[in-house]
């Protein structure tokens, strides 16, 4: 049984949060650069150039990429052969989150749902983090992290279709969600599609799909084909960067598909803005 110190987890989480708040990952930067080079609308091209300059300024001057520094979302795969010494893993992740957000001058964006009171002085600075745990083989902790902004989360949708809806029904649904969203979620977007499972499994899968490297090919050839097809359809919408019109609305479509009930076809669409701040670390 490998022993991992509580404080080492706190430090690792803090570091990944500071990093993601100010440095756009290579895959997102490259995808925006490619969109810029390919875009036909002069207005959209100009705004895409601004996004690249913004990423350069943020990195060079250690400024937050965006004022919406997100809720902290984690997928944590805990090896069955390790244990945390000195506290609970959940507490360590929350503590690292709070420290990272404070140290990097990121925004505290969590609030009570009805009074809208900010939780920074009660629950904690930008706490609680959203954490999805799983137990896996091995003696390491794999942490996938993303800072998830509110604008793109607000346009995300889920439903449960009857099985007859099939692939065509899912594609039509994704198109409708992105069409309705227009420029609100800050395109160019990454679109996570969770298919199958149960209602909540589809939702979590659509979130997890956003953590995949932008531009990577789905391991399942059938899903890879479907991703390509949906991407073409979405870029036909003409929404463009920040909704100002253009041919580059979507940088990537990522699908995660699961077995489901014989009666159901759940589907969830989770939308990610162009500022796709995500990272993968191993503790």
């Amino acid at each position: 049984m490998r022993e991992i110190q509580y404080q080492d987890v706190v430090t690792a989480i803090k570091n990944v949060i500071i990093h993601c708040g100010t440095i756009l990952p290579d895959d997102a930067y490259k995808a925006i650069k490619d969109a810029h080079d390919n875009e036909k609308s002069p207005v959209a091209k100009e705004v895409l150039a601004q996004l690249l300059i913004n990423a350069d300024i943020a990195k060079d001057e250690k400024r937050p990429l965006c004022q919406d520094t997100g809720l902290a979302v984690f997928f944590v795969n805990v090896g069955a052969d390790c244990r945390i010494i000195g506290g609970l893993l959940r507490d360590a992740i929350n503590e690292g989150t709070e420290q990272g957000y404070k140290d990097a001058y990121l925004r505290a964006s969590t609030c009570e749902p009805f009074s809208r009171a900010n939780l920074k002085d009660t629950v904690g600075y930008n706490l609680p983090a959203i954490i999805h745990f799983d137990i896996v083989a091995g003696d390491k902790i794999e942490v996938e992290y993303a800072a998830k902004g509110g604008g793109s989360e607000n346009v995300s949708r889920a439903t449960v279709f009857p099985p007859a809806a099939g692939k065509a029904g899912i594609i039509e649904y994704v198109k409708q969600v992105i069409s309705d969203a227009g420029g609100n979620p800050c395109p160019p977007l990454t679109v996570g599609v969770g298919i199958g499972g149960t209602f909540e499994k589809a939702g979590i899968s659509s979130k997890h799909a956003l953590f995949r490297t932008i531009g990577s090919v789905n391991k399942d050839p059938e899903m890879a084909e479907m991703e390509a097809e949906i991407k073409v359809e979405l870029n036909k919408l003409g929404i463009g960067t920040m909704g100002m019109g253009g041919i580059e609305t979507v940088l990537a479509v990522h699908i995660e598909s699961n077995p489901c009930h014989i009666a159901s076809l759940p589907v969830s669409v989770n939308v990610q803005c162009h500022s796709s701040r995500h990272a993968h670390i191993t503790i």
Binding site: N54, I57, R63, L65, C66, D68, G183, M244, C273
Partner: peptide
Amino acid sequence: GATGGAGALLGK
């Protein structure tokens, strides 16, 4: 409209 997600640039 200002550019969403260009917070570092706009803050300056």
